[in-house]
Design a protein around this nucleic acid. Structure first.
Length: 261
DNA sequence: ATGGTGGAAGGTCCA
């Protein structure tokens, strides 16, 4: 089974790119973040046409929104309202063998990395802490977690560790919280299991840099995790950088993982 | 030190 995750920054504006990606890469289950559209306007029929008739999505006007579209039937679906908000940042489904697949869009956190003055940053930290509590109390062992977590946890997950230490996405408060979440949840960070920690690895390049490929000031904000006991089933994992060069690109690129079930 | 760009809106917020 080939599962992919991608923050597409508007599912309606990026529809052609998503369909092209699914087709070219032969994706089976596609997880999307930042769909930015209410459920009534989600382009269901366009996914039906390519055989992705199994769909679950939660969206809202202008902001957030997550979706899972699949060529395989899934058993169950649901979501959690994190931080007592109803802001469409999470859904899950159960794929075959009752494996839970969670799709997250974690708050970006604003500009100021200080919970006492920046409510957005406080929200982000609370969100990560709630995820930790949730997966500690959810004792089910067979899980996958994907999405835009808006944190680049390791030194080589950003173009300059030193220069980004006080930039939201790479502050110690965030990176320590995320690494703690990985550890306590007994997750394997698949891409970092495959790519050595001393190699740069990014999934996002800002729109604000026209020469994004030359300057290569990226960050690894997007993640694909799996429960430790399932990791032996993972056959490959790739951050698919090509889409960043496509016409009208998202600023994020997809992650593709092959799992043997 | 600042602003650079893009998306959903149709002014302004968010990333």
């Amino acid at each position: 089974m080939r599962i992919a995750t991608w923050n597409i920054n508007s599912v309606r504006l990026r529809l052609k790119q998503v369909l092209r990606f699914i087709k070219e890469q032969k994706i089976d289950v596609m997880c999307l973040q930042e769909t930015k559209t209410p459920n009534d306007f989600f382009p269901s029929k366009d996914f039906d046409k390519i055989g992705f008739v199994h769909q679950y999505f939660r969206g809202e006007k202008s902001y957030n929104g997550v979706a899972i579209v699949s060529r395989f039937k899934f058993k169950d679906s649901g979501y959690v309202n994190w931080c007592k908000k109803n802001d469409t940042r999470h859904i899950y489904i159960k794929i075959n063998n009752n494996i839970e697949l969670h799709n997250f869009y974690v708050p970006a956190g604003g500009d100021e990395p200080d919970i006492s003055i920046n409510p957005k940053f406080k929200h982000k930290i609370s969100f990560i802490n709630e995820m930790k509590d949730y997966f500690l109390s959810n004792t089910k062992k067979d899980k996958i977690l994907v999405g835009d977590l808006n944190i680049a946890p390791l030194e080589q997950d950003v173009w300059s560790h030193k220069q980004l230490l006080s930039v939201v996405s790479h502050t110690p408060i965030e990176t320590e919280a995320l690494l703690d979440l990985i550890q306590t949840g007994e997750w394997v960070d698949i891409m970092r299991e495959i790519v050595p920690h001393d190699e740069k690895l990014y999934s996002w390049w800002s729109y604000r840099n026209r020469n994004w490929e030359i300057s290569n000031r990226g960050r690894r904000l997007d993640h694909f995790w799996i429960s430790k006991n399932l990791f032996s089933l993972v056959k490959s994992g790739v951050i698919y950088k090509d889409t960043r060069s496509w016409e009208k690109p998202s600023d994020h690129v997809p992650i593709i993982v092959d799992i043997d079930f």
